[in-house]
């Protein structure tokens, strides 16, 4: 009987293992930074809750660090109003733009316009704030009255800032809808518009929602541009023309000189912000994932006759 064949050794396996471990360590260090950051914010911020209570902090109407009064309801309300305003203006505008680029514009035009819109995201936020400060604030003051520094001004600036996110992700979601859905609808005699409303938007819905949530996250987290146009008063705004302070502005404005309980309260503001952003992100990933799981039927087979009929959806930058 011939001897049993020995297991051959492949030296490359060792290298693979080594490289795998190195990559693991690097990846872990990135995650551990997030972990340390979270721990740090919570450790610095949580003591305020035991001092003035969760309710007193979250629902307190007055923010007077000099007197040891720390209520952040005005800032929570401020963030909600400003973000809500940004979405009311930004979502319809963004969706309309994405629909135009994906369904109506000739390919050549959308190939130029989409990168141009994505470039909007690369402009530093201080520039948006500056333009808001010198153009928007005086305009609101003279046309609508009030100080000009307001919920409205912040919402408009934020709406513009979240447009690239909403447009880019909605556009990708629309382009990912198989051509056969559109053809199926058109072949039944549907008009272009009926096809968009009846088939395209429902099919792209999860992607669109994910884009809106990511835009919302951007709006909640934006600081610099908002500080410059919001007025930053620590009161709950009653009209869109009232000045407003958001959670992020609160931290940025006061952290420079805060100490003791004041500093802790600012960290706690960060904790609240952190939790809001986390919830939004989890929502966005869940929705995006369910879109992949729901897996569209196979895309229309591209025959030689219809090849290159539609532009492939260029993968947009996702944040």
């Amino acid at each position: 009987m011939p001897g049993r064949r020995r297991i051959p050794r492949d030296p490359r396996e060792k290298a693979d293992r080594l490289i795998g471990n190195i990559l693991l360590a690097i990846a872990f260090s990135a995650v551990s930074i997030l972990l340390l950051l979270t721990l740090f914010i919570f450790k610095e911020g949580l003591p305020i809750f035991s001092k003035i209570g969760l309710k007193g902090f979250l629902l307190g109407l007055k923010w007077a660090p000099g007197k040891g009064v720390f209520g952040i309801l005005p800032m929570i309300a401020g963030s909600v109003y400003v973000t809500g305003g940004a979405l009311i203006m930004g979502v319809p505008l963004g969706l309309a733009c994405a629909l135009f680029l994906s369904e109506i514009a000739p390919l050549r035009l959308s190939r130029v316009m989409k990168p141009a819109i994505e470039l909007l995201a690369a402009i530093p936020s201080v520039v948006y704030g500056f333009i808001g400060l010198v153009v928007l604030v005086p305009l609101i003051r003279s046309v609508l009255g009030g100080p000009g520094f307001s919920v409205l001004a912040s919402s408009v600036v934020l709406a513009i800032m979240i447009l690239p996110t909403i447009i880019s992700i909605s556009y990708d979601a629309m382009k990912a809808v198989p051509v056969s859905f559109r053809e199926g609808s058109l072949a039944l005699g549907a008009s272009k518009w009926q096809t968009m409303i009846g088939v395209l938007l429902p099919a792209a819905r999860s992607g669109i929602v994910a884009g809106v949530i990511l835009g919302m996250g951007r709006a909640v987290g934006e600081t610099m541009a908002v500080i410059m146009v919001a007025g930053n008063a620590t009161t709950v705004p009653l009209t869109p023309l009232d000045p407003v302070r958001t959670l992020t502005s609160n931290i940025a404005l006061e952290m420079g000189y805060a100490a003791g309980d004041h500093r802790t309260a600012l960290f706690a503001t960060g904790v609240v912000l952190f939790i809001i952003i986390m919830i939004l992100n989890v929502l966005a990933t869940r929705i995006t994932r369910s879109r992949i799981r729901a897996s569209f039927p196979k895309p229309h087979r591209v025959s030689s006759e219809t090849a290159s009929a539609t532009g492939s959806a260029e993968g947009g930058e996702r944040r």
């Binding site: 859905f181 609808s185 005699g189 008009s191 009926q194 429902p202």
Partner: peptide
């Protein structure tokens, strides 16, 4: 296209219920 109906090579129902797939056309 209402007068000339078409069935495609790949059967791809619209992303909705069986009922709505059929009702989609008349609703247009």
């Amino acid at each position: 296209r209402k007068v000339v109906g078409m069935v495609f090579a790949l059967p791809i129902p619209l992303p909705m219920s069986i009922y709505d797939n059929v009702a989609y056309g008349p609703r247009l």
